[in-house]
Nucleic acid binder design. Structure first.
Length: 283
DNA sequence: CTTACGGCCTGGGTGC
DNA sequence: TGCACCCAGGCCGTAA
């Protein structure tokens, strides 16, 4: 499931292949995950891809319109759980559940495949672009330690929920949240406001390190993630708690536990990551 | 405003 | 062989 490192890997792959290319044709399969399929079909052909951006888990393809009277557009892509973007020759085998084909002027094709169709494709006018970008929280690969701490230290929500909240930080998903909390030795149910200064520092370090390592290893391929060239990532071999329920903690040997926190299944070591004191429920 | 939670979308994998 | 069920991430509505 693509989170920040996977989306970043895909973005880097696309950046080597797409800028400067013109879209010469559009073919769509199922369209229920696209905000305006007719606009995609009518307005994309003829545009030139000027840039590929990542913000949080979103990808943005910036498109220059051919005529100066026409407005520039952006194609906003969210891969959901099972979305894949592949650049390939048009004769390459078409994977099942491929629903978007963009023919490029170099003879290649950009394809979007999504088994579950939890992904989203949106076409944005240039005036909607920045408003959309501004809704996503700070980028955890660029945020300063002070900004990171300030975002969390006054919040009474659970740290797991805060790290997953895309308005707080953009790009953390279940894997990297659990891995970061394990490294920082913080239980997912701890409240943001109850973290000590030292814990916030450790968590900041953990988030940065986990994401940097994961990007270096081109993401985690736990189910069907592949990058723009169809390659799998390698970070899944470095997972320390994610999907390791019942296995030994790499640090202390206690058995990794799984619990639902903030509506998501959360993996943690009950010894390294001590649970917060349960507040006595008032009757 | 903040937080918590349930429901919804879809289909592959699992377990009976 | 079939089939019910679980689960995933994001988002939205509702309630406290």
């Amino acid at each position: 499931m693509p989170e920040l490192p996977e989306v970043e890997t895909i973005a880097r792959g696309l950046r080597a292949l797409l800028p400067g290319r013109r879209i010469v044709g559009v073919r769509l399969g199922k369209t229920d995950f696209i905000n305006d399929p007719a606009a995609i079909e009518q307005q994309l052909p003829g545009t030139r891809i000027s840039g590929v951006r990542r913000y949080g888990k979103f990808l943005m393809l910036d498109l220059q319109s051919p005529g100066s009277s026409m407005r520039d557009l952006s194609l906003q892509i969210h891969l959901g759980m099972t979305g894949q973007l592949i650049v390939c020759p048009p004769e390459a085998r078409v994977a099942p559940h491929t629903h978007v084909f963009l023919a490029l002027d170099d003879g290649r094709e950009l394809r979007y495949t999504d088994i579950r169709r939890f992904g989203k494709l949106r076409i944005l006018e240039d005036d909607q672009r920045e408003a959309t970008l501004s809704k996503v929280g700070l980028d955890p690969t660029e945020v300063s330690e002070a900004d990171f701490a300030n975002k969390l230290k006054d919040r009474r929500a659970r740290i797991k929920a805060l790290l997953l909240d895309q308005h707080v930080l953009g790009g953390m998903g279940n894997i990297y949240t659990d891995e970061s909390l394990w490294r920082a030795r913080i239980h997912p149910m701890r409240l943001g406001t109850n973290l000590t200064g030292d814990e916030l520092r450790k968590l900041y370090r953990a988030v940065r390190d986990v994401l940097d390592e994961a990007i270096r290893l081109r993401g985690s391929s736990v189910s069907d993630y592949i990058d723009a060239r169809g390659q799998r990532g390698e970070f899944q071999v470095r997972h320390r708690v994610y999907q390791r329920e019942g296995k030994k903690c790499f640090r202390c040997g206690a058995l990794v536990r799984r619990a639902i926190v903030a509506g998501r299944s959360s993996h943690f070591c009950p010894r390294c990551q001590p649970a917060p004191r349960v507040r006595r429920r008032k009757r």
